[in-house]
């Protein structure tokens, strides 16, 4: 089947429209935080964001044409990366702060109350300052997010059945469309072609840092759950278990 009939410009406007609405924690924050109160707020917000992330993914052109098992595997594999990239985007103009939501902003040092989270906060802040340095554009941000989703499970399994082979071919074509869209977004910045190529490289290299901090975050959340520091339930529990079961 021909590649998506969308031009890069049309593709970008479609994924810009797919952007989830800004959500709020909508909780009375009792400060100073305790380890469990901070983890409770972080997981409550994450659970709400996951619901919005799934409806976001369904609006990515071509995602619903993939096999249902591919859709599930992709989302299971990248959900924390997607949440973290959204956090970085919201925090990009607030050096030293993590804007989890407009009513839930944390300074780096507030993470001290949760064992093991400072290392993750520092990685998130470092990646965010890199995006600030690069002056990441919203069009580039939405392309990177779609790339994370579509790229997440590409190298975890080899397709066996004919359906899996067909779905993987669709996935690769979809990934081409997202890369074309990112290249198009970069071409609008008035850079030389060599600078455009370098920028594409720098942006995609950041994806490996996002995967790394997501893996650290997944381990940390599993530890917090195992130690009963926080009760993880519902969709967040499903997505966490999906990762811990596959990794263990």
């Amino acid at each position: 089947s021909p590649r998506l009939a969308l031009t890069p410009e049309q593709f970008i406007s479609r994924i810009m429209e797919a952007e989830p609405p800004q959500i709020y924690l909508m909780e009375e924050l009792k400060k100073p935080f305790t380890e469990s109160s901070m983890m409770m707020s972080l997981t409550n917000l994450a659970d709400k964001e996951l619901v919005l992330m799934i409806s976001w993914a369904k609006k990515i052109p071509g995602f619903m044409e993939l096999s249902l098992s591919d859709q599930i595997h992709l989302l299971k594999c990248c959900w924390l990366e997607i949440l973290m990239l959204g956090l970085m985007w919201r925090s990009v103009d607030h050096p030293g702060k993590l804007i989890f939501s407009p009513d839930f902003k944390l300074n780096r040092d507030e993470g001290q109350c949760v064992e093991g989270i400072m290392e993750i906060f520092d990685m998130l802040l470092a990646a965010t300052s890199r995006f600030r340095e690069l002056k990441l554009q919203r069009e580039e941000y939405v392309c990177l997010k779609a790339m994370i989703l579509l790229n997440s499970n590409l190298c975890n399994t080899t397709p066996q059945t004919a359906e899996e082979v067909e779905s993987r071919a669709k996935l690769l074509r979809l990934l081409d469309s997202v890369i074309d869209a990112l290249v198009w977004a970069i071409s609008k910045l008035g850079l030389s072609s060599q600078q455009q190529t370098l920028r594409l490289g720098h942006l995609t290299m950041l994806l490996s840092h996002i995967r790394h901090v997501s893996n650290k975050g997944m381990d940390h959340l599993s530890t917090m759950k195992r130690k009963n520091v926080v009760l993880v339930y519902d969709l967040l529990l499903e997505m966490l278990d999906a990762n811990t079961s596959s990794s263990s």
């Binding site: 409806s55 369904k58 609006k59 969709l235 999906a242």
Partner: peptide, 13 residues
């Protein structure tokens, strides 16, 4: 993946 499956397969609003 009950909740994930349910959210994936519900028709968009």
């Amino acid at each position: 993946h009950t909740k994930l499956l349910q959210l994936l397969t519900t028709k968009p609003e």
